[in-house]
Amino acid sequence: MLARRIIPCLDVRNGRVVKGKKFQDIIDVDSPEKLGRFYSDSGADELVFYDITASNEERKTSLEFVTRVAKEINIPFCVGGGISTIDDFTNILRKGADKVSVNSSAVRNPQLIREASLKFGAQCIILSIDAKKNREGSWSVYIKGGREKTSLDAVEWAVKGVELGAGEIVVNSIDEDGMKNGYDLDLLRKITNAVNVPVIASGGAGSMAHFYEAVKYANVDGILAASVFHFGEIKIQDLKQYLKEKGIEIRI
């Protein structure tokens, strides 16, 4: 049986790992390859790196971390942030990443998903969606790291993304990000019911029970978190043992 995946997420700026609370108040944590190795040795199933380096020029230098990570670890990893062209995909995959995630650029240019999927295969194209609940009771897609609201509905955008060729969806709840109150289970459930590719929950983990709930009540394939891992509040080994005891298929 396929195991549910535990995925530490590392935000990278200028080649260093940082973590934002509600995308602000950024605190420096450590070097990508060092943390990557630490998590890989601790039993992480996969890693996600989001490069939040501001300018394109600086990002070129920042992305050198991808090569260093590929040398350090032997589990799959995904790189996202600022990817807007096929050349960006080529560059990152050549440096040794297994998957590339797109967010704002795919909203602006959905054909990017199709092109990349045809060229590299759906399995390495991850559509990352930043979603926030709106007054109508559904979820709007936000871009630019949560700063700009779009007219897209998050569930519809996930379905469209898969049609275009995305092989996996990462759902990041802006409302829950950094709040440690648990994942947005309603949103996740709607998306896992609507698409037939793996769905990864992101934003809101504060306790081990939150991970269990995301699998149990929203049937997600993977669960992503950052600060609870970076600050040692939850140890991956303990979390996996806990989930396994709760009857979840987990790699130990």
Binding site: L2, A3, Q123, N196, P198, D221, R251
Partner: peptide, 11 residues
């Protein structure tokens, strides 16, 4: 019926 690609850790 399961999701394709078969992607992830399997025993």
């Amino acid at each position: 019926k399961l999701k394709v690609p078969h992607m992830g850790w399997n025993n």
